[in-house]
Design a protein around this nucleic acid. Structure first.
Length: 347
DNA sequence: GCGATTTGACCGGG
DNA sequence: CCCGGTCAAATCGC
């Protein structure tokens, strides 16, 4: 059993390093492309750093005592994934989703619904000034399909799904929930993975950032704001993310999405790697009070010094499992060959 | 007119 | 039966 663990960690470590290598290659490419934006490059740098950190944490946790949590030294934005089991004691256990069954006449294999789709949340806080913040775009186009008041939460939760769900059966969804206590924190939960092919060419990327939209409190409906749906220019919109943001990320469950480079040999075509690990979503709606920030408020030269990571408040503080995660919770979805259903492996 | 959002209804799990 | 997630008709915005 332990051998399996060790073996597994080696494997994920290799994955991590390979991902870092690919990201570095991407960065190299971007450095040669004049159209590449600063934000894009910075994002790649961040991801490379993240990759290193994860690899290091794997090494630390495996060789020495697992509890050793080390801080990331850099003051930059970093992303830390914290694994937290769904039934952990922290409140807000967004329970499994009860998806109404589809009209899938054919697919009666509804055994695995979205029951165990990968799910991870990112908590995003924006500290620049206050109030209205950014078009946090994660590079995907989402369509809002619902909004609900959640028990015990002051603010409603917005439900989004991928725009191309019908055409590409892209089942990715996300939820955006504003924190009750600190209204500047948004908790974005992603579910599923994007299978849709987004605008890959990048020829006519819509550069327009979304305009400001007034904040609206939960019950007011009259003030609707024209806001354009977030466009999918994977790379370009990503530049919104670093500046002035204070990012809290928390990963739930599996994060096998982060290893798509597993079998993409060419460094060029894993551009969609970048789309996954960018946690910033565009809470676009006027329904809940989301925000947008004008680009110019954040000088590009600001170096986002305020960017800071905070480990997730709920579980990260006391959970020793910070930094090591259960890598392939649903590995079967991505890697069918990679079965590991050993009992008690992680559960 | 079309596509996205809004919003109450509905559904299913716990 | 309550609550969270989704649907779908109405509405909005372009």
């Amino acid at each position: 059993m332990e051998n399996c663990n060790i073996h597994w960690e080696q494997k994920s470590l290799v994955n991590e390093l390979a991902q870092g290598r690919d990201l570095a290659r991407q960065l190299q490419i971007h450095l040669n492309v004049p159209s590449s934006s600063y934000g894009t490059r910075e994002l790649l740098v961040q991801k490379i750093i993240l990759s290193y950190e994860k690899a290091l944490s794997m090494l630390n946790s495996s060789s020495s005592a697992s509890g050793g949590e080390q801080q990331q030294p850099t003051g930059h934005v970093a992303i830390r994934m914290v694994e937290s089991p769904p039934h952990s004691l922290n409140e807000s256990p967004r329970s499994e989703d009860s998806d109404r069954e589809f009209k899938d006449h054919d697919n009666k294999d509804s055994s695995r619904k979205r029951k165990n789709l990968p799910r991870w949340t990112h908590q995003i806080r924006v500290t620049s000034g206050m109030g209205l913040e950014g078009p946090l775009d994660d590079g995907f186009s989402w369509r809002k399909y619902g909004q609900k008041d959640i028990l015990g939460a002051k603010y409603p939760r917005g439900y989004y799904r991928c725009t191309h769900r019908n055409v590409q059966s892209c089942l990715a969804t996300k939820q955006v929930q504003r924190s009750d206590e600190d209204p500047t924190i948004f908790e974005i939960t992603y579910r599923g993975k994007h299978t849709c092919t987004q605008a890959s060419t990048g020829t006519s990327t819509p550069p327009s950032p979304s305009p400001l939209q007034p904040e609206r409190t939960e019950r007011q409906n009259n003030l609707v704001d024209p806001q354009q749906n977030q466009q999918q220019s994977q790379q370009h919109t990503l530049l919104n993310l670093p500046e002035g943001l204070r990012v809290i990320t928390e990963g739930l469950d599996t994060r096998e999405e982060l290893f798509p480079s597993f079998n993409s040999p060419s460094p060029l075509n894993n551009s969609y790697v970048g789309s996954f690990s960018s946690p910033f979503a565009g809470p676009t709606t006027s329904g809940t009070n989301y925000f947008s920030m004008s680009q110019r408020d954040f000088g590009v030269d600001q170096n986002f010094q305020s960017g800071e990571i905070i480990s997730a408040p709920t579980s990260a503080t006391n959970s020793p499992s910070v930094g090591l995660d259960i890598p392939f919770g649903q590995a079967d979805q991505l890697f069918p060959n990679f079965s590991f259903d050993g009992p008690g492996f992680f559960s």
